[in-house]
Design a protein around this nucleic acid. Structure first.
Lengths: 237, 237
DNA sequence: ATAAACGTTTGACTTTTATCAAAAGACAAG
DNA sequence: CTTGTCTTTTGATAAAAGTCAAACGTTTAT
């Protein structure tokens, strides 16, 4: 009985539809099986629930199975900064590898996720060939994303917005969603926070892109009408 | 004879004056010895020499022993961005852990450095307890630095400049240099690039801080005259 | 020593984005 | 459906930083 429940909490990485995007990328079938034995399925979270909190001791590496989350950090003066948006199949928790999490991870809508718990990582790395390397790879991927964010802060408002929409679109496509129609997971306020723009500027930029017939927007529903032009704006203007 | 030369290229991590800042942090004496056997001393580099190049296959993890370096990346449009400044004792190369380096590392002056070569990392991690964890820690430290850079892009010009000077000062102090008097390792142009400001703005901000008697600056020589005020500017203004 | 090259500063002006204030629109609860 | 709340949009204005042009200093090479 108890065993049944525990078994239900185990997850089979082999059957998970995230596949290559997640940790199993680059592991043997044996490796994936070992991983499955250790990864814990977590229960559902709802909007504004925390996956982990800034200041928490390192809890482990998490994978979003469905839904979206944001990574935020509060600075010294108490201001909140949205560092990234996480889509299904994306990993989080690397900000805690040196003991304490520097970010909070918060559900943007209903989220299913699983966990590779901290305590088991060392063992598992010794057991599963390539797992260490795979984790380093992911960690480096995440560092590069952060570096791209630094570079993007030098763009104009319009470029930032175009780049933001294109990035979301690309990542959604990689995950099997439509690249041309999707719902923004953030409020205007959150978009402004994420891009370093005032909320009024966000509103004006979206209107401007709409007037250029590059996108169509209704509340949070986005349709990208002209990819080439949107890309041109993101790099040229 | 050849053996002598090779031995000279080996480095003793136990006797290196970088100590705790570098990889040995958190390793046993045995671990440090094993590390010493693998780490290669590299020859001297001069200003503008490359430690590694953007696009290179992952070469390994490097440590600056003396001198300074910058990490830069060229974006799609060929613009160069200075992502970080590296001081003695700081590690670099983590941007390559997922196969290819996303940055170039370039000496800002005469640099001595050593290398933990890629090929030996896997072995060594299996041999030396805690080394994997230590590398994850460093990798996470670097991710956090990048996150702080993202946050700092939202500051005003004056705040960015104050934060930049304070960060340099703090890190120099940690390394046994003066925290109140030091030489800027960058040109005005590079500072502007690093902080996302026009060169003219950099010049004006430095003048402004000087007029407020918070710093004294002559060419690249900086003296911090009023730490409390500089800190206040960095967070309050 | 002098010129040439390079990096820095300064001033005038423009552009971009933030801020403030108010209206309009969406959404949720009674 | 309607009220109240919250979010978004719009317009007017202000502030910050960028751009352009020219002068000034420093350094390097002849």
């Amino acid at each position: 009985m108890v065993k049944d429940i525990l078994d239900n909490l185990k997850i089979s990485c082999s059957h998970c539809n995230l596949g290559d995007m997640c940790i199993p990328r680059g592991l043997s079938q044996q490796g994936i099986n070992a991983l499955s034995g250790v990864v814990k399925q977590k229960s559902i979270l709802h909007q504004d629930d925390f996956i982990y909190r800034q200041g928490d001791n390192f809890k482990g590496i998490f994978a979003i199975q469905s839904g979206m989350a944001k990574l935020i950090t509060d600075d010294l003066t108490g201001n909140e900064h949205i560092l990234s948006i996480l889509l299904p199949g994306e990993l989080l928790g690397f900000d805690g590898l040196n003991d304490t999490h520097s970010c909070s991870a918060i559900a943007l809508n209903t989220v299913h996720f699983c966990e590779l718990p901290k305590d088991r990582i060392d063992d598992l790395c010794h057991q599963v060939p390539n797992l260490t390397r795979e984790l380093f790879r992911h960690s480096s991927d995440i560092l590069k994303e952060s570096q791209v964010r630094v570079i993007n802060t030098k763009l104009s408002g319009e470029q930032k917005m175009a780049a933001f929409l294109l990035d979301l679109s690309k990542r959604l496509k990689q995950r099997g969603f439509s690249e041309s129609e999707f719902k923004l997971p953030l409020t205007r306020n959150e978009i402004g926070n994420h891009l370093g723009l005032a909320i009024e500027t966000v509103s004006r930029l979206l209107k401007q892109l709409q007037q250029k017939k590059v996108v169509a927007i209704q509340q949070k529903e986005v349709q990208i009408l002209d990819f080439p032009e949107l890309k041109r704006i993101a790099v040229d203007d």
